[in-house]
């Protein structure tokens, strides 16, 4: 018994110490992100969902602290995975009430990253678990994986460039699970071309949205009415 107790005690102590360690890292990342009060970004969005045929198009993204976020597409309609969290990176970190655990290290595109799991303290939080892959050297989140109660798991991969100093990515790729889509033919009065879309293609439940940012306008103030 004794060796086991000692072992558990040791693990606990190391966990707590590393928790303090990673909490500090997350805080540092957050501090950096906090330098951005607001931004307007322009970019190009591509949607890749098996059952959506959407053209790539220009988007304009508005952000204002603490968590106002809006994506506008030219032409008007945007289809985004449910739950703005996945799009709004800093909202991942807005909540103070989480517990951070280290989950070792990993590699993303050749960069060594710390893997940190965040557990929200609030019991009714929609987010069950967030895993961050943080590039410690540059204090940048390279990847985030969020598991929610309602909307499955989202992955978000970021690439950085010109705006890395603000912690703002040049490119974000969201991956997410999708539910089935089916509208009864009676409602759509479908035109039968006789051609069935490849069934496996539609069965692919992974959706992807890619946004390439071309320009950020940071901390120049954003009117509240942009978020209406």
């Amino acid at each position: 018994m004794k060796p086991l107790v000692i072992f558990i005690g040791f693990v606990l102590i190391s966990l707590i110490s590393s928790a303090q360690d990673v909490t500090g890292l997350v805080k540092k990342v957050k501090t950096r992100l906090d330098r951005v009060n607001d931004y307007v970004a322009e970019g190009r969005m591509k949607t890749d969902v098996a059952f959506i045929k959407a053209p790539a198009g220009k988007v304009k993204i508005f952000f204002k602290k603490p968590n106002k976020f809006k994506l506008k597409r030219d032409g008007g309609i945007s289809i985004l995975p449910r739950g703005g969290v996945s799009v709004n990176m800093s909202s991942l970190l807005t909540s103070e009430s989480y517990t951070a655990f280290s989950a070792g290290e990993s590699q993303i595109n050749g960069t060594t990253v710390k893997v940190i799991k965040l557990l929200p303290s609030a019991e009714n939080s929609d987010v069950v678990l967030t895993t961050l892959y943080i590039d410690e050297a540059n204090l940048l989140i390279r990847k985030a994986s969020t598991t929610t109660r309602e909307n499955g798991t989202y992955d978000m991969e970021m690439s950085y460039g010109k705006y890395a100093e603000y912690g703002l990515p040049d490119k974000v790729v969201f991956s997410f699970n999708t539910k089935d889509y089916k509208v009864p033919k009676g409602i759509t009065l479908e035109y039968e071309t006789g051609e069935k879309p490849a069934a496996d293609k539609l069965k692919n439940k992974k959706g992807r949205i890619e946004i390439n940012y071309t320009a950020y306008t940071i901390n120049k103030g954003v009117s509240d009415k942009e978020f209406l």
Binding site: K72, G75, G76, I77, I79, L80, R82, N151, V183
Partner: peptide, 12 residues
């Protein structure tokens, strides 16, 4: 059906 997974915004 779509709203279950997606937020659709704009002048649909």
């Amino acid at each position: 059906d779509l709203s279950m997974s997606f937020d659709i915004e704009g002048n649909i």
